[in-house]
Nucleic acid binder design. Structure first.
Lengths: 201, 201
DNA sequence: CCTACCGATCGGTAGG
DNA sequence: CCTACCGATCGGTAGG
């Protein structure tokens, strides 16, 4: 079915996991409260005992993970001794985070644009902007320090890296026979830093 | 507004261009016939003079461009003398095609999954499968011939290349002051083939 | 190209 | 956690 849902002692958390799977699979607008209710084994109206609105469910699903990301990136910057290692560590954090939170990442990537105009979800676009500004700063510092190739457009190269780490949640499957997570991480690092860093990595 | 719509002598084509822009911007399911009608300057009911159903509009928008792609890739394979040049030519075709048909590509990338289960749009998934099989064949042949690095997972590397060329339609804007199309193509080629090909390009 | 309308489905509420 | 229901919106039709 969804392949996303998990168990937990808490009924509210169960419902959230079910909803996250359906939102990721079918999109937020194309998932009805009736569908969520049916999957959770109750009437749609009963969901309103746990959540005030459908928007509240989405908020509860995405907010915590997303808003903790800027801090995680800043911690990497602060704790990485060699500047050459910062960007690869960013890529690895993004990939492993996406793999661990596939439903949330898929929802964010898919709904980001349609939620951008809604006040209540403005934090999504703002947080993505914050994250991308952190990445851009690292890329530009890397170019200034001669660590990153100066002959490519920094913004385009950055967009490509973000595309790569952003789309992984949409095709990566844990337990795939074709590749392990470590293999995906290694290939993406090879791919990106075989071409971007000065003099190989 | 949509930034996608174009003019044409034909009213039907005008409506299609408007619908394509709205589908790309808001998603197929989240675009109503009333919205399309209002943007085209008529009542929703009047659209049914030109199209039998909303699905017919989507079909007319995406079918021609998509179904011509496999032939275009095969032509490149047949006409490229040096095997080393095939994959870069694929990337360039994908990028320039996406840039020239941004709305269509955006729709295809976004709706691909949700349309996969519908008979009438099965050709979309089938055509993508066909295209990806062509790419995979080239990657595997390149590895066998020692042109492409054998130390990375071919399927993961392929997925990354397809992610890159597939997502460009979603952020590339003609007339951007930050980068020209040629600059995007060059950066993507540098990026991919600086790291993937044996001994540089 | 329009007015008028249909049945289905949506998120959400009332009241238990 | 349920039944019963609301107003809004959807794709589409009838008839001109």
């Amino acid at each position: 079915m969804t392949a996303y849902a998990a168990d937990s002692g808490n009924r509210r958390e169960d419902i959230l996991a079910i909803a996250a799977g359906l939102f990721a699979e079918n999109g937020f607008d194309n998932t009805s409260m009736r569908q969520i209710g049916a999957t959770a084994g109750m009437q749609a109206a009963s969901l309103y005992h746990y959540f005030r609105t459908k928007d509240d469910m989405l908020d509860a699903i995405v907010r915590d993970y997303l808003t903790e990301l800027p801090g995680a990136y800043r911690r990497i910057m602060a704790e990485t001794a060699n500047p050459r290692d910062v960007l690869p560590a960013f890529v690895e954090l993004a990939l492993r985070g996406a793999a661990r939170n596939r439903a949330v990442m898929t929802i964010l990537v898919h709904e980001r644009k349609s939620l951008a105009g809604r006040d209540r979800f403005a934090f999504i676009e703002e947080t993505f902007d914050e994250i991308e500004a952190i990445w851009l700063g690292v890329v530009e510092a890397g170019i200034a320090q001669g660590i990153i190739r100066a002959d490519l457009n920094a913004r385009v190269a950055l967009r490509m890296m973000l595309d790569l780490v952003g789309s992984v949640a949409q095709w990566y499957r844990p337990n795939s026979r074709r590749y392990t997570l470590d293999e995906v991480v290694k290939t993406e690092l090879d791919f990106i830093f075989g071409g971007v860093m000065v003099g190989g990595r």
